[in-house]
Amino acid sequence: MVGKNCVAIASDTRLGAQAMTVDMNFPKIFPMTDHTMIGLAGLATDVLTLRDQFKYKVKMYHLKEDRVMAPRTLAHVVSSTLYEKRFGPYFVEPIVAGLDPRTHEPFICCTDTIGCIDFAKDFVVVGNATENLYGMCEGLWEPNLEPEDLFETISQALLNAVDRNALAGWGAVVHVITPERVITRNLKARCD
């Protein structure tokens, strides 16, 4: 979700094997640079594989180019990494959220499992409870939210959406990325 000079990214924390919950504290959002995070929803094994791959690619870029990777660049890295496996895809839908390292301009996007990028100016959603999330975000989001208001908006959107989805929930984590710092909060949620 985009705010005024800030972006927020949030996820639930459940890991399940179909209906059985295996872990209630499974991270799906990973920091890539100081101002960029990537959220991966989907098959847990591919979440871990891609997390490692993206970390590697971001670090190598940093070493080779001696500059921090911009979120827009990372989005294209993500896209091409996924499209490499066009006919045997990773079952993961990523979200990239961050601020441009130089201008601090907010950037968010998501892609599908084969890397088709969806740039958005307001919000993007992926994963299990997308319909619920679209409804919540369309209802709650407004332009130019300050970090604290953005936090409240994204939290309410996520919590109420996952409460209507049997396969999501069991806690949530929210990161608000501002030029100065990243605010991370773990939310209490319904665990049923």
Binding site: L15, A17, V22, D23, F26, L43, A44, T45, V47, L48
Partner: peptide, 14 residues
């Protein structure tokens, strides 16, 4: 905990 799809999770019980 590691399943046949290679999902890895550290758990207090599994």
């Amino acid at each position: 905990w590691i399943d046949h799809l290679a999902a890895l999770v550290q758990r207090p019980f599994a």
